[in-house]
Amino acid sequence: MSVDSMIAQMERWLGTGEPNLIQQWYRDRNGSAYAYNFPWCNATITRAAVDAGEYEAVCFGTDYAYTVAHAARFKAAGQWHAMTNGIKASGIRRGDVVFFDWGGSSEIGTIDHVGIVTGVSSDHRYVYTIEGNTARLCARRVRTVHEIAGFGRPKYKAAPKTTTASGSSSTSKRPQVSLAKLIKAFKTDPPKKGTPVSYPLVEVVENALVAERLLAKRYADGHAGTATRSAYTLLQERYGYRGADADGIPGMTSLKRLGKAHGFDVVA
Score class of each variant (00 low, 15 high):
residue 52 A to E: 05
residue 241 Y to P: 01
residue 101 D to K: 01
residue 230 S to W: 02
residue 83 M to K: 12
residue 35 A to Y: 12
residue 215 L to Y: 03
residue 35 A to P: 11
residue 164 T to M: 14
residue 246 A to P: 03
residue 192 K to D: 12
residue 196 P to K: 06
residue 230 S to V: 00
residue 106 S to Y: 13
residue 118 T to Y: 01
residue 189 D to S: 13
residue 3 V to C: 15
residue 33 A to K: 07
residue 66 Y to F: 05
residue 12 R to L: 08
residue 142 V to K: 13
residue 36 Y to A: 07
residue 211 A to T: 05
residue 30 N to T: 03
residue 190 P to W: 10
residue 97 V to Q: 15
residue 244 A to M: 11
residue 116 I to V: 12
residue 86 G to H: 00
residue 222 G to T: 08
residue 35 A to E: 13
residue 98 V to F: 02
residue 175 P to Q: 01
residue 9 Q to A: 11
residue 252 M to Q: 14
residue 42 N to L: 12
residue 234 L to W: 04
residue 6 M to N: 15
residue 219 Y to I: 00
residue 267 V to P: 08
residue 7 I to H: 04
residue 91 G to N: 11
residue 263 G to V: 09
residue 127 V to T: 08
residue 138 C to A: 14
residue 159 A to E: 15
residue 35 A to G: 11
residue 60 F to C: 04
residue 205 V to P: 14
residue 105 S to G: 10
residue 262 H to M: 09
residue 111 I to L: 02
residue 19 P to S: 08
residue 218 R to G: 03
residue 172 S to K: 09
residue 169 S to V: 12
residue 135 A to M: 06
residue 223 H to P: 04
residue 207 N to H: 09
residue 48 A to C: 03
residue 218 R to M: 10
residue 51 D to I: 09
residue 21 L to A: 15
residue 24 Q to R: 11
residue 264 F to I: 06
residue 173 K to A: 15
residue 175 P to G: 00
residue 260 K to C: 12
residue 100 F to C: 02
residue 237 E to W: 13
residue 88 K to G: 00
residue 195 T to E: 15
residue 188 T to G: 09
residue 136 R to L: 09
residue 86 G to S: 01
